[in-house]
Simulated assay, not measured.
Amino acid sequence: MAPPLDPEVLRAALVTRGSGWTEVEHHDSIGSTNARATRLGRPWVVVVADHQSAGRGRLARRWDAPPGRSVAVSATVPVPASGAGWLPLLTGLAVTEAVEATTSLAAVLKWPNDVLLPSDDDRKVSGILCEVVTARAGPLVVIGAGINVSQSRAQLPVETATSLLLAGARVTESTGTDLVVAYLQRLADRYAALVEAPVTGGALAGPTGLSGLAAEYRTRCSTLGRRVRMTRAETNGAIDVVGVAVDIDAEGRLVIDGPGGPTAWAAGDVVHVRLDG
């Protein structure tokens, strides 16, 4: 089993002057860290749990794991005035960087923010869900991330999932805590860069602003250059387009070059199509 998170270490590392984060709430077990963060309704609050029983992923998918085998973390930030569509993508970037900083594993992204581990055949180790909620302090984004730490193959819900342990990482007493700290520090840095990016003609721009963040994301995004299949929830599983993912546009949308030419997609379920599939 993965050792439990250390709330005191988390607070000491995260609730510091200039870090942004103001509070860390730890639970041994909880229904949903996102639901709890929503109820708290304050910006810059972190809710973490060693186990959640009612976790949700993108497209209303259930994200579940046996107790003590994964970590769940939700964080609240104000809705950015510009570039909000990039926040889910930059969250994925922060998780990939944290995985690499705390384990021996390389990590890549499947658009928009599924974290995949190449050492285990590009299986998914982390899922991210961003939700905009109304709070007294103003609109907030609740950012939820679940990271598989030490599940066995039989404990994973689907064949395409993995854990850090299965992919070859050495899981120690501090792995989960170190991972959460590294992720949230990077998330705060990415958020600051996003909100400080200059705005030109209504769009974020500038080498030190979003264009630099976008370049980093593109480097990590294994979807680009791949043949993909896109479906959306509102089409009830019908395929919207099959083509080659050629770019991420200025709004964070995936551009797919399909039969009708390049089109940009703000949301949907992307499958990397193998050459034999």
Rank of each mutant, 00 (worst) to 15 (best):
A2D: 00
L5G: 01
L5E: 00
P7V: 05
G20C: 10
V24Q: 11
H26I: 04
S29A: 14
I30G: 00
G31H: 04
T33H: 01
A35Y: 04
T38P: 02
G41Q: 05
V45S: 13
V48D: 01
D50N: 15
L59C: 04
R61Y: 11
A65E: 02
G68Q: 03
A75F: 07
G83F: 04
A98E: 06
V99F: 07
A101M: 09
S104N: 14
K110C: 02
K110H: 03
D114E: 12
D114I: 02
R123G: 03
K124F: 09
C130L: 14
A135H: 09
A135K: 04
L140F: 10
G144C: 09
S152T: 15
P157K: 12
A169G: 05
R170N: 06
T172W: 01
G176I: 00
D178Y: 03
L179G: 00
L179I: 00
A182H: 06
Y183T: 05
A188Q: 13
R190Y: 14
A193K: 14
P198D: 08
G201S: 10
Y217E: 08
R220C: 08
R226Q: 14
R227D: 08
T235I: 05
N236E: 13
G237E: 15
A238Y: 07
V242M: 09
I256C: 10
G261D: 14
T263V: 14
V270S: 01
V271M: 12
